[in-house]
């Protein structure tokens, strides 16, 4: 780099390239720029016409595919939502029906139970009344027997005590009079 600059640099050719700082060597302008233009333009058209449509196409196709899949998924989700709503509606309906049936059954059952109970109660009450009537009859009979026995016994008792014969009618009158007091 320290050699003296030769005078041959006005004609650009390779031999003098190291006399100047190589990256700034003006003798390389023309050959470099010609090939830069050729290669850059070539790359531009290769990328624009072939590579970019190819890669971009794949990316776009993928996005379309994903969009389609998302759309399909959304449609299916709507369908599922619809089915879900139908299901929930029929579930609610069934539940309402079940409640109604349960209520009517219960009402029917309790009415029947009430009726049977009333029947049983009525029968029981009748039996009770019969029984009471029988008891009263028996008691009355028993009490009237007591009067007969007393009048039967009273004649002999009086005869024994007083030695007087009393007729059965007198005894009876006396007893009923006594009982009537």
């Amino acid at each position: 780099m320290t050699e003296p600059v030769t005078t041959g640099t006005e004609v650009p050719h390779g031999g003098t390239a190291d006399k100047v700082f190589p990256p700034l060597d003006p003798s390389t302008v023309s050959p470099q720029l010609v090939w830069l233009a050729i290669t850059f333009v070539a790359l531009y058209f290769l990328l624009k016409k072939i590579a970019i449509p190819r890669i971009g196409g794949v990316i776009e196709e993928r996005q379309n595919r994903i969009q389609r899949d998302i759309d399909a998924a959304e449609r299916l989700k709507d369908e599922i939502d619809g089915a879900m709503r139908t299901y929930e509606k029929s579930l609610a309906d069934a539940r309402g029906n079940a409640t109604a049936i349960a209520r009517t059954t219960q009402e029917k059952l309790s009415a029947e139970v009430d009726r049977e109970r009333a029947e049983v109660e009525a029968a029981t009450a009748k039996k009770l009344a019969d029984a009471e009537a029988r008891i009263a009859e028996t008691k009355r009979k028993a009490l009237s027997s007591v009067g007969d026995i007393a009048s039967e016994i009273a004649g002999p008792v009086v005869k024994q005590l007083t030695g007087k014969d009393v007729s059965a009618d007198e005894v009876k009158r006396a007893l009923t009079a006594g009982a009537g007091e």
């Binding site: 650009p12 390389t28 023309s30 050959p31 470099q32 010609v34 090939w35 830069l36 050729i38 290669t39 850059f40």
Partner: peptide, 14 residues
Amino acid sequence: GVDATFTNSALFMV
């Protein structure tokens, strides 16, 4: 008429 010498620079561009 333009100097389009194929250089190592051109080689690497290609």
